[in-house]
């Protein structure tokens, strides 16, 4: 103890001595970091202001129905887009989460270290694939291969509204878009879940094992309850990505503007992001303003989703 005190004292004195005038380095560094923080905030605010201002024309003109090509109100225009966006993202989430949790558990609790490390890298690599590549792969390779499955489900489980309707080739429908989205959000959900599962206190795991739990029982009674909030927030992050994903949806789904539940039907759905990408080059005036309004809606949706995710993360695992 005494040696620690002795070594601390000179350092403490030094700080006190220089306390009157702050060092230049400290001032510059703190100004730089505060500035960087502000830039993030300003950029976000600038986007929000831009979206709000530019969409005003559409909001105010929504009742007048100016002579644009498809004379529908703003609500009629935006509604199906919100529906399509959320529908595709939620379907993707439903497919991705169980698989991601399975992979994460495999990496954290089943695989040997020799296998789990490369597998982790591989998952991260999947996150690095550009979305346009996923779009190409989905549209060219995946869609024809999913066709038999769609036809099978449509024929035998057609009484379920989701699988009903009349699928037509090429199957560039909401189901295909969701599958591609699911693959794209798999890495983030897997990575976050894996981290949380690895943090499970060893003592808790051993408590379960010492009671005679099998590995699966241990995971069920200890790891999953501990990681629940982490998996939920990981899913929210994935959902946020799926909502905003543009290229893959654009390339895999042929657009339509309805509230159809039939995920195998082509030309029924469109997402906000893909719609903006497809239309913005040729839009001016009120059409452009309407696109920007849909962008504002997407911005708000993803913002809320992310905020929820953060709130769940900060609440943290129960300890």
């Amino acid at each position: 103890m005494s040696t620690i005190d002795a070594s601390n004292k000179p350092a403490a004195r030094k700080t006190v001595a220089s306390g009157s005038g702050r060092r230049a380095g400290d001032t510059i560094f703190s100004a730089l970091s505060v500035g960087s923080g502000l830039i993030i905030f300003l950029a976000l605010a600038a986007v929000a202001v831009f979206l709000s201002l530019q969409s005003r024309e559409a909001i105010e003109g929504s009742r007048e129905l100016t002579g644009s090509a498809d004379a529908v109100s703003l609500l009629e225009y935006t509604g199906p887009l919100i529906f399509g966006t959320v529908f595709a993202a939620v379907l993707a989430l439903l497919m991705a989460v169980p698989v991601a949790v399975g992979i994460a558990l495999f990496i954290s609790h089943y695989a040997s270290r020799k296998l789990s490390t490369p597998l982790g890298y591989l998952i991260d690599l999947l996150a690095a694939v550009p979305s346009v590549v996923f779009g190409l792969w989905g549209g060219v390779w995946l869609v024809p291969r999913l066709e038999p499955l769609y036809l099978f489900l449509n024929k035998h489980l057609g009484f379920i509204p989701l699988f009903a309707g009349e699928p037509t080739a090429p199957m560039k429908n909401l189901a295909s878009a969701s599958v591609v989205l699911a693959v794209m959000i798999l890495p983030i959900i897997t990575a976050v879940s894996r981290e949380v599962f690895l943090q499970t206190p060893r003592l808790q795991e051993e408590a379960a094992l010492a009671l005679g739990a099998t590995r699966w029982e241990m995971i069920k009674s200890v790891v999953l309850p501990f990681g629940k909030s982490g998996v939920i927030s990981a899913s929210m992050l994935g959902l946020g990505r799926a909502l905003g994903e543009t290229m893959a949806v654009l390339m895999v789904m042929s657009p339509g503007f309805t509230y159809s539940l039939h995920i195998f039907e082509v030309g029924r759905h469109q997402s906000i992001a893909a719609n903006i990408a497809a239309q913005s080059a040729e839009s001016t005036g009120i059409d452009m303003s309407r696109l920007i309004f849909t962008g504002l809606v997407l911005f708000v949706i993803t913002f809320v989703i992310n905020a929820i995710a953060r709130a769940i993360v900060s609440r943290g695992p129960k300890s």
């Binding site: 003592l203 808790q204 200890v222 309850p225 501990f226 300890s319």
Partner: peptide
């Protein structure tokens, strides 16, 4: 697993299941 059902264990730190 069967061995551990016959031979119980109490650990250094109390570790009740938190949930």
């Amino acid at each position: 697993v069967n061995v551990r059902r016959r031979v119980g264990m109490v650990f250094q730190k109390p570790n009740p299941f938190p949930t």
